[in-house]
């Protein structure tokens, strides 16, 4: 168990982790100040016989100070967070040349649809995988989330992705992996009895391995015998 987020393997994940770190240190500082003041007061002003408290009703200058400073502090956090957020979630800012995939969630499995040889989704040569997401490394991937029954949430902890899949909506997500390997795919929104086992894997391949895998899958999908050599990574 590490004392932090799971290992990050996505491009924008580093920005998220940095934002987390910045807020962590800012709140840690405030934590020390506030709790320190509290403990100081508790010790310093504890009851003494014969002493009378000083009946202070307030101090306008101080009160203005601790209104204005937190305001600018949190506004700064919001301002820096906004661009990171929009880079990740805004459909306008998603990479244009991304590989297009379609993800459909239903109780209790993920199915991922890949474009066939023509590179187009919703054509005859599409093929699908269950509970497995296969993507090439260092390449932007754009996924469109669908849900068939209830709300699910597409959760890739190592890739710092979380996005609900809502029935009746098509929600775009993009990601770009920075390291090959096998990672976690899960459902983060309560979706019923089997919610806890609605999980799968993300396999990040090198481009070459991915092409081999894709060709093999396409061949299986089209009914032809797989004549290609087995993929080493599997």
């Amino acid at each position: 168990m590490d004392w932090g987020f799971p290992e990050n393997v996505s491009t924008f994940g580093a920005d998220i982790d940095a934002a987390y770190g910045a807020i962590f240190y800012a709140t840690a500082l405030m934590f020390v100040i506030v709790q320190g003041l509290l403990v100081y007061c508790i010790i310093r002003f504890r009851r003494r016989e014969g002493r009378k408290a000083v009946p202070i009703h307030g101090n306008t200058r101080l009160e203005i100070l601790w209104t204005v400073v937190p305001f600018f502090g949190v506004m700064f956090i919001a301002y820096t967070s906004a661009s990171v957020w929009l880079d990740i979630k805004s459909p306008d800012r998603m990479p244009e040349d991304a590989m297009e995939l379609s993800v459909t969630a239903q109780q209790f499995e993920w199915s991922v649809t890949y474009p066939g040889a023509d590179g187009q989704l919703a054509t005859a040569d599409d093929y699908s995988t269950r509970n497995e997401l296969h993507i090439p490394v260092d390449r932007a991937v754009r996924l469109t989330l669908h849900a068939q029954d209830v709300i699910h949430s597409f959760y890739l902890p190592e890739l710092r992705v979380k996005q609900d899949a809502v029935p009746g909506m098509e929600i775009p997500v993009w990601l770009q992996a920075t390291a090959t390997g096998e990672y976690t795919l899960g459902c983060a929104e309560l979706c019923g009895l089997g919610h806890y086992r609605m999980r799968g894997t993300v396999n990040v391949y090198s481009q070459q391995e991915f092409d081999t895998w894709a060709a093999e899958e396409a061949a299986i999908a089209s009914g032809a015998p797989a004549s290609l050599p087995p993929v080493a990574a599997r």
């Binding site: 807020i23 956090i77 967070s81 957020w85």
Partner: peptide, 8 residues
């Protein structure tokens, strides 16, 4: 409250 940190 910070939208990007809320993702994970």
């Amino acid at each position: 409250a910070s939208t990007p940190v809320d993702i994970p």
